[in-house]
Design a protein around this nucleic acid. Structure first.
Lengths: 158, 158
DNA sequence: TCCTTTCAGTTGCGATATGCAACCTAGTAA
DNA sequence: TTACTAGGTTGCATATCGCAACTGAAAGGA
């Protein structure tokens, strides 16, 4: 297998590509951010995000299809529909927070509102960081990309 | 200010919105993933990602404009141009990794290749997680969104 | 009951963005 | 000097986006 073929395979089987097919569209992240902040209804998303209604409809549909949001009719008022995060959706929080912190640091230059705090200590959460298996925060120069099979061989040789 | 206006402002001044304007387009994340994996040249990106040449050209230009990639001519071969991550670009690693881990967990169902390991221990890095200020891993039900000013008042009242 | 409003969409249509293939220009290699 | 490579650009077709107007079912009020 040529180096080019190798790399192409690398991209095809990458989790990023898979993730982006589901949440990579223009408004998806902002809709999710809304959901994390307590938005539940179509009109809420629409007026708060200023998104076009047809696009919102389409995105909500896709997010529901992919099991990131759950769509339930409101039993008390049958016009209303409630969209809320599933476990799969809630598990996107690290992505959202990483993105947000990066934007705060490098683009907007100041912390966003509202702040996500530890419910008990009332302190804002820590910056998202890459950590080693034993929990130390590490920087890019302490890391290395390794082919999975090669890593396998390494450890069995040791 | 009405609740609607409040929320709208919340979104406008959110770091996510800011970040997405810069890296929210279709191919941006995949190009960055390529850069993290060592891709440097136009043709490398093009053949490995399978992206259209005009789009690639446009995206690289935007990423350079926003200071995420640096564009240097190769002094040895003046046809060649090198694109590489700046500090601002490297700081997107948590976003990329969160996204990738989510994709592995919820979409593709298996770890991607290559693996990012601690250079010294040779162990894969830990899953990205949200942590409290003192470093404990916390889950969504232990967190709360708080208005910045309100948090201010809370702490001064204490 | 009839009228109005709300909620959650859908439809039509023009403006952008994307993708493909062919072409271009400077520089290198034989 | 001919061929080839790197890094684009151009033209054109298709897909996606965004706005505004419309729909249809369900409340709510007089």
């Amino acid at each position: 297998m040529s180096r080019a073929e190798q790399l192409r395979e690398v991209f095809a089987e990458c989790g990023i590509g898979a993730a982006l097919e589901v949440v990579g569209e223009r408004w998806s992240f902002l809709i999710l951010r809304g959901a994390f902040n307590g938005l539940r209804h179509f009109e809420e998303f629409q007026t708060n995000l200023g998104i076009a209604r047809n696009i919102l409809s389409n995105r909500l549909g896709r997010l529901v299809e992919h099991g990131i949001l759950r769509r339930d009719p409101d039993p008390a008022d049958r016009r209303k529909v409630t969209y809320r995060l599933t476990d799969k959706g809630r598990d996107l929080l690290p992505v959202l927070l990483s993105l947000r912190q990066w934007g705060e640091r490098w683009i907007s230059g100041h912390p966003s509102n509202p702040v996500l705090v530890d419910r008990y200590t009332r302190k804002p959460i820590a910056p998202m960081a890459v950590r080693s298996a034993d929990g130390r925060e590490i920087s890019l120069r302490d890391m290395e990309w390794v082919d999975r099979d090669e890593l396998e061989r390494e450890s069995s040789a040791a």
